[in-house]
Structure formats: C-alpha cells, structure tokens
Amino acid sequence: MIRAKGLSKRFGDNLAVDDVSLEVRQGEVFGFLGPNGAGKTTTVRMLTTLVAPTGGTAWVNGHQIGSADAQVRASVGLLTEAPGLYPRLTAVENLGIYAELHGVEDVPGQVRRYLTLLELWDRRDEPVGGFSKGMQQKLAIARALLHEPPALFLDEPTAALDPEAARVVRDFVDELRGEGRTIFLCTHNLDEADRLCDRVAVIRQRLIRVDTPANLRHGLYGRSVRVRLAKMTPALEDIVAALPFVRSVTPLESGLRVALDEPETHNPDLVRALVAAGAAVQYLEEEAHSLEQVYFDLMAESREAAA
C-alpha cells in the first residue's frame, strides 16, 4: 500500500515533482504516465527513499519515508530505469548478492526459484552480460522480488527493449498480477498501461488525473455508440436526437454516432426506435477511445492550463 501526501521535490530552481497526493491499494497495479521529465523517476525515488522529498511525505507499506527508511526499503522491490546488473557476474551471483543484502533466509532456494521461473536455470552460471536485453530486464525484475516485497516499483520496464523483448517482459509483469503485490508501474507505453493497470495516474510535475483507464476515457469523452445503417437518412437523425436518453447525435457517412450515458440500458431502446422508423441496423458498437488519445488530450489540457 502506498500513500503520498503533497509529495514535492525541488532541484534548485527546478520543481521536478509538485504536490503529488495519491493512494495505491494493496494488490493494485498502478500506472504512472507522463512525458519525459515529468517527474516519474523522481517520485519513485522518493517513495523508495533514494532521494528525500523537499515537501510532503508518504507511507509505503505502513512505514513513513524519512523516518523509517530502512523498513521502507526492506518492504519494496525496485526495478530502476537501467537494469544495473553486474555484467561480469553470473545470474546466480547477481541474484545472490541481493538476496543476501535483503537477509533472505533460504538464499540458494529463492535464487533457484526465480531462475527457474525465468527459464534461466540452465544458464545460471553464465555472465549476465551475454544475456539478451529482455532476459536481463526479467532478471532485474526477479532481483527486485527475491525478498518477496509487498510493493514493487517498475520504472519503465519495457522502454529500452525491442517489441519482442518488451512483450516477454510485459507478460512477466502480467503473471505477477494477482499475487497480491502492489505494483507501481512507470511507463510511456499507453497500450502497456491499458493492458496491465487497474488505475493510472497522469503526471506532469503535478498530478493531472487518476482513474481507471475506462473512467478516464468516459470522463473525457462521455460514452457513445456507433450505429451502422444500410441506408442513412436525415430523418433518422432527428428521431434519435428526440429520444430522452440521447445526449447528442452526429451523422456519419453510413450511420450515426450517438452519445449516451448508459449504453447497456438504452441501446435496446435505441435499436427499437430505429427499427420502428424503418432503418436497417447492420451493427452497433461502443466507440473506443485509446488511452493514447486520452493521454494526449490530457496533456494538451494541462499545457493550456499552465499557459
């Protein structure tokens, strides 16, 4: 569980993180989105006690940063922007060092468990400098998990990887869901956030919005459905616009875009009305906004607000 209250960090004149308050529940996968220099890494570093905030405070797994730093660090795992493995050391040696630093009881057993999970057991005695980037990244994530921390911070786990390696890592993170661990995931990749995260925060120095990906879409655009008709006539537009639950109607080339609050409840009525008016409904689907669209619109909004 992570709770931040007014967390801020100033480097000289540069306010890198400004008054960030948020709460991440136990077991939640929480996405942290923002452009370069938005303060993602700085926030993670504050939450893992690597840098001290210049304002505000936070609690991680019940321990307050600044007053119980060692306990915070013992209860979190961190994947840093660069994997930071020792290239000359073997996979076993790399993991062993961290297991020992964390005081893991059964070091060989735990190292073996994770190397087996990563399908690296056969290559355990090779220097990791020779591993593919994707494998190195997975090894670095495993290294953050050896002491079974309740909270895991992943700072752009797929940013430096080619699409295939990125998928390997993403699948691995997906597997970690549902083990009850809180996962704090910084990312640029909006598909990744959409796929993995229960909720996302959009940040640019300040926190711009926090919500589930679905709510973010709906909050920004409302909900709407696209109706495709065999033949579109202007009269149909008026009939649909007159329905009480419809917020607005936009004619399309071969149908209508209808904005409405609860498609689940009102779609049947909408279809009935259209059919009654003689329209031939071919299909009807909810209009999907990608998280990418949401993100860019939020960014544009925040730029305007700043200007």
């Binding site: 690597l50 840093t80 660069a82 930071g84 290239p87 961290y98 630093l101």
Partner: peptide, 11 residues
C-alpha cells in the same frame, strides 16, 4: 552499469 541505484534501494 548504473548498478548503484538498485543496491541503494536495498536495506
């Protein structure tokens, strides 16, 4: 190798 940051995140 930027290996100090992960080390510093341990106890």
């Amino acid at each position: 190798t930027r290996s100090l940051e992960p080390i510093l995140a341990t106890p």
